[in-house]
Design a binder for these strands. Structure first.
Lengths: 349, 349
DNA sequence: CTCCTCTGAGAAAACCTTTTCCCAAATCGC
DNA sequence: GCGATTTGGGAAAAGGTTTTCTCAGAGGAG
């Protein structure tokens, strides 16, 4: 009556008890055998292992979690509906966690407070080990308070709570990369067209922009603030090139606050017969590949390394969950310049 | 020594046992009181409820799941890295499930078989109640076999296994919507520029395109197959307009396989001085808002209602998990035409 | 007053795994 | 050959909840 011969096409998952019975040992021994704990003869251990293997035993994660008081799940909370920023970040988080056996609940809460509350409670009920909060942009708070949650919370690419740990891209550094690249290429009159004043990053980047120009002794034009849209990029070209028509001071480079703006700028330049990159170089921000690569010419852009940011956030959360303390504060991760063809070649190249 | 007065700033979550102790009843009674089961005086029930409320009791979902053999989680498997299709779908799924207390594990498996296997096993170990498989496009299989999984699987916007249930958008219907819209507007020479022949939807849509034209007695031009890119749209305009330069038979409408192609088409037309929508109407596919709205003029496009598709998939999975049987096969959900300004107004408007 | 039926509530098993403690047998030292 | 130690393995508790029994007492019928 032994079930040893059956190839285990069981309807219900096989439990440790069944493995133990089949191997003729107690569940305790079976557990220890499979986890490398306890003491027993090598043959016993091996026999149990084989039995488990043969039966297709997989420990019930729920039971483990209940006992260990760790669910090996984390929640990722976002309000970025289209996932343009969230998904690469999620990818990094997941990448950092999958090897530790941790899965990720993704919750898109839009800007709906009720929904956010609902999702957070669902995650808490499911005993997530921690939460990563992220958002469209690093300025607006998520519509829910995560400050007193009894579980670790990491903020990534969104405004952190005062005493929490957050990861952000080094936007100032990214701006430096862009402007310095222009300088290296010999561009002299570098303009900056960016998003609305309500975003902190707009000011951070603008400051870096001014600093680099000053360091190189180049004239600083006041950054043009507008929207994060192609239309604004288009319009900005009018402001940059019309009012000084014929003058020699028209920009020979434009550093844009995102790729959509850059796209609008490039289109507008082409319409005016201004060559990119020959007459004017353009650099974007975000490195949204699907846009940057479709631009003509393909757009050089600052990449925020969101995936790496996600990885860091995931690892940080993991160590927090593991009991390590972490100093609160914001860690900035470097950006990277992805050079395509919208800036021209270096003079020496 | 009663803890009744403490406002429960406990470090550890409060358990049913504590609620029961505080209310002076057994855990069994407490459980029944909170779940509306069993028989007891109304006062007892109310007293227990209040105690639970006061202590901030939330049942441990892990323990419940272990007992009920249902985890109230599902897995969403995708290989759409940028989430352009997955995220709206995920949004719909989540929307359908959140009210049932079900959370969603999102797993991006790229096209990495090992990763897919890893994630599926992690989800199985966590005893997800079911899996929804989705993908970039409805043609390529996910790099993992979900056929014999012992839990329900629903395919959404991706090629289903033979005996599974799948949800897809009605691409032929969507194409009809677009072409019929052109017909209503009095366009006579309607071209079709679309993606590569390797996609089934390309042929489905092309067939619908031909049918509608035939129904209206209009000439059918052979669809132009290429890539899903702006560059291809750009190039296609050359093919459509160059070789018949001067002839009266140049198209007065172009139905495009996606919004990026449409974008390329519109840009190319503008460069040739051909007016949109005055000379040529353009309709895209996907209704990728961030692209469609930035196009000049804003692009009329077919929306696949991915969010609704996700909802349906979520509900279907829920009923499968609940034990309802479902006939295998593919259900097609209707598309919807989002009219913007790239087609012009109806003659009577 | 006795017997029976409700009523309200508790004890305990079940879900599945891990871990601590314990015990019997075997081995060792002398 | 006897006590002490090691070895191999089991029993049981724990984790938090739900559910099925069970049971004591109260109330009603006769």
């Amino acid at each position: 009556m032994s079930s040893d011969a059956s190839p285990a096409p069981a309807k219900t998952p096989v439990t440790l008890r069944e493995v133990a019975a089949s191997a003729g040992v107690s569940v305790a021994t079976a557990s220890k055998a499979l986890n490398g704990q306890g003491r027993m003869t090598a043959e016993t251990r091996e026999r149990i292992r084989e039995t488990a293997q043969r039966l297709g035993f997989r420990p019930n994660s729920l039971a483990q979690s209940l006992l260990r008081r760790r669910s090996f799940t984390v929640g990722l909370l976002t309000n970025d509906t289209y996932g343009r920023f969230s998904l690469p970040l999620m990818s990094g988080v997941s990448d950092a966690l999958v090897d530790a056996g941790v899965s990720v609940f993704l919750c898109n809460v839009e800007d709906d407070m009720r929904l956010a509350q609902l999702h957070v409670e669902a995650m808490l009920d499911k005993r997530v080990d921690g939460i990563i909060a992220t958002g469209k942009r690093i300025d607006r708070h998520l519509p829910v308070d995560l400050a007193n949650l009894r579980i670790p919370v990491i903020y990534a690419f969104t405004q952190p709570d005062p005493d929490a740990v957050g990861f952000e891209s080094d936007d100032a550094g990214g701006a430096r990369l862009a402007v310095e690249h222009f300088c290296r290429l010999g561009r002299k009159r570098i303009a900056h067209v960016t998003g609305p004043a309500s975003f902190a990053v707009v000011h951070e980047r603008a400051r870096a922009y001014r600093e680099v120009l000053a360091e190189h002794g180049l004239p600083v034009a006041e950054p043009l603030l507008g929207a994060w849209s192609e239309a604004w990029g288009h319009e900005a070209v009018g402001k940059l090139f019309d009012r000084r028509a014929g003058r020699a001071e028209a920009p020979d480079a434009v550093f844009c606050g995102n790729d959509q703006i850059a796209r609008g700028v490039i289109d507008a330049l082409r319409e005016r017969g201004i060559g990119v990159p020959d007459d004017v170089g353009v650099i974007g921000f975000d490195n949204w590949e699907i846009v940057a690569e479709a631009t003509r010419p393909p757009l050089t852009s600052v990449d925020m390394n969101l995936s790496a940011l996600g990885r860091e956030a995931g690892l940080a959360l993991l160590s927090l969950v593991g009991g390590q303390a972490a100093a609160p504060g914001i860690r900035k991760l470097p950006c990277r310049l992805v050079v395509r063809q919208s800036c021209g070649r270096p003079p020496d190249g």
